[in-house]
């Protein structure tokens, strides 16, 4: 009985820890708005990469369409707010729904016809380009700025602090979903699909159904985050449907370690810090240097350590956890 409560507390702590660690950051940064915006962007990217972890990390499907879902959900919520004064709280849910619907429409035939591996990756990459080009036809080649509105009704504020705190809740939610799925039946199914799809099918797992489920969950999360992403970028356009950005999310997921929550989160935040540091110092001289380094990092991880950063972090976490649990796991 004691042990169970302790176990529950530790699990709760794992989910809340990033949030608790994130809360005092604006104080530590002295409410410097530039740094808080960076913190907000890293929390968003971490959430997106963790959502990717469900389809890419657990299920092993190299999805390169994350910004298709972010763009669709985010632009829907933003347009609803601008044109009909509908609160983003509702808009984000609708965005989540429309992204999940798109994922279903795309995923159903893909999985129904047994498309996997490189063909799945290519199909998702093609999806981003198709949306990118179609949205030019709809929205035109312009950048749109969100009119200045303020308050919790619009989830937009004069400073970035509140949105940052809000994004921490989203991150905690995505971490919870990841851990929950990781330990549930679905998580075991997905990992067995990643390891060997044919074998998984042979032991009676409905491969299509669970891959589709993972894809829809992933897309729903991204559609929800979309609005916050657009607000943090201050602008939206057809360029929101970005192929390179979608690849970047997959890079984070792989560098962090497939299926590892702590690894992916560390990778997202670490890469963001490196990116900003290099941009600040060398951005004017050598644009794209950070991306070049990320490419090299991805190659190094793939060749030498396919487990990613998680191979360094997880043993460390396990030791801490064991100590917290009183020597037993």
């Amino acid at each position: 009985m004691m042990m169970n409560i302790r176990k529950l507390l530790v699990s709760l702590l794992t989910i809340l820890l990033p949030m608790l660690a994130g809360l005092p950051i604006p104080y530590l940064l002295n409410f410097n708005q530039y740094y808080i915006l960076l913190a907000l962007q890293s929390v968003i990217i971490a959430s997106v990469a963790l959502a990717w972890n469900i389809i890419g990390g657990y299920a092993g499907q190299l999805d390169l369409a994350s910004f298709a879902y972010i763009g669709l959900g985010g632009i829907l919520a933003t347009e609803l707010m601008i044109n009909y004064n509908i609160t983003p709280w509702l808009g984000m849910l609708l965005g989540s729904g429309i992204s999940a619907a798109l994922a279903f429409i795309i995923g159903y035939p893909l999985f129904r016809f047994g498309i996997r591996g490189v063909w799945y990756a290519l199909s998702t990459a093609a999806l981003v380009v198709i949306l990118h080009e179609s949205v030019i036809m709809v929205l035109g080649p312009y950048d749109y700025y969100i009119p200045f509105v303020e308050g919790w009704y619009y989830l937009r504020f004069r400073t970035w602090d509140n949105l940052y705190y809000f994004s921490l809740f989203i991150l905690a939610g995505v971490i919870f979903l990841n851990l929950y799925i990781g330990r549930s039946r679905l998580g075991y199914y997905l990992r067995s699909i990643r390891e060997d799809e044919v074998a998984a099918e042979a032991v009676g797992i409905d491969v299509r159904k669970y891959k589709l489920l993972a894809l829809v969950i992933y897309a729903a999360i991204l559609g929800f985050i979309g609005y916050i992403y657009i607000v943090s970028q201050r602008t939206f356009s057809y360029k929101t449907f970005s192929g390179p950005q979608s690849v970047y999310i997959a890079i984070i997921g792989i560098v962090g370690g497939l299926g590892s929550v702590s690894g992916v989160m560390t990778a997202a935040i670490f890469l963001k810090i490196v990116e900003e540091y290099l941009r600040g110092f060398l951005g004017g001289v050598l644009p794209g240097l950070h991306l070049l380094l990320f490419g090299i990092l991805l190659i190094v991880v793939g060749v030498l350590r396919p487990g990613g950063l998680s191979t360094f972090i997880e043993p460390l976490l396990k030791r801490t956890k064991t100590r917290l649990m009183g020597g037993k796991v």
Binding site: G56, G60, L62, G117, V118, A121, R194, P244, V247, A250, I251, I254, L258, L286, P287, G288, L289, L291, L292, F294, G295, I296, L297, L298, I299, V301, G302, V303, L304, P306
Partner: peptide, 28 residues
């Protein structure tokens, strides 16, 4: 050569990394 026989996802990822390097070398 080192990724021969590894998971397809890792194989693709490595070439994606090469592409990223080439793209950003050109950009630089």
């Amino acid at each position: 050569r080192p990724v021969f026989g590894k998971e397809p996802l890792i194989q693709i990822a490595v070439t994606v990394g090469v592409g990223y390097v080439l793209q950003n070398t050109a950009l630089m």
